[in-house]
């Protein structure tokens, strides 16, 4: 087709209505996710020592950092749904920057030592219910975020998929920390943090196929 005719055809179709700002998308998604997690939290009941934990600085900073990771990675996923990533190339690294302080607060304040023997022992316990719960908590908000990101035109689809998954699993992890009364760092590494890393890799692969702009 001749380029001039193509231009006339596209002009007659008109431009599409712009998507909401990524910040607005994040806020809307966040409200839905927090309502969902709130319902799940009230259904499962919070851990028995929650009032003591609220006075624990490490625990509170861990929860705050998890929320920070969840929000920043959701914002990154929504920015990445634009071809130019909303002209914020740094946005996808913010969640990683928060990961180090989170690790310090999560594992420094936990009871018990992190040794290879402890990690191996924790692995043999086969506590699959933790990653299973995190995955279950994450699925509905995960579907929602993937659908919203898909409405855009993602060029960095692996990044977008992993950021979306990191966001939902960070909130799933946070809910598990509010529900489960287990502060053993070996358990947290083997049955919480490592499965989240695996889920992010799966999210990256899903992103490659589900979010690719064709």
């Amino acid at each position: 087709m001749d380029t001039d005719k193509l231009i006339q055809k596209m002009a007659s179709e008109g431009a599409q209505k712009p998507l909401p700002h990524p910040m607005r998308q994040t806020m809307l998604w966040l409200i839905g996710t927090l309502v969902y997690l709130g319902v799940l939290g009230s259904y499962n009941g919070l851990r028995a020592d929650i009032s003591d934990k609220f006075s624990d600085l490490f625990y509170m900073s861990e929860i705050a950092l998890l929320i920070g990771i969840g929000i920043s990675s959701a914002l990154a996923a929504f920015c990445l749904s634009r071809p130019d990533a909303h002209q914020k190339p740094w946005i996808k690294y913010v969640a990683f920057a928060l990961t180090l302080p989170w690790m310090i607060s999560a594992f420094a304040g936990a009871s018990g030592e992190i040794t290879l023997a402890n990690l191996f022992h924790s692995m043999t316990l086969g506590q699959f219910d933790c990653p299973w719960h995190i995955a279950l908590f994450s699925v509905p908000p995960g579907i929602a975020i993937f659908l919203i990101v898909r409405m855009g035109a993602t060029i960095q689809c692996c990044w977008a998929g992993s950021m979306a998954t990191l966001s939902v699993t960070a909130f799933g992890y946070m809910l598990m920390r509010l529900i489960e009364q287990n502060d053993n760092p070996a358990h947290l590494i083997v049955w919480h943090a490592l499965p989240i890393m695996l889920m992010c890799m799966v999210g990256m692969m899903i992103g490659k196929f589900a979010l690719k702009w064709r």
Binding site: L6, M10, H21
Partner: peptide, 19 residues
């Protein structure tokens, strides 16, 4: 060039006019 024009058209909703 035509492919790029079509892509710009199909992604027109992702452009933020503040950028």
């Amino acid at each position: 060039v035509q492919e790029i024009l079509i892509s710009i058209h199909s992604a027109s909703h992702t452009y933020d006019t503040d950028r």
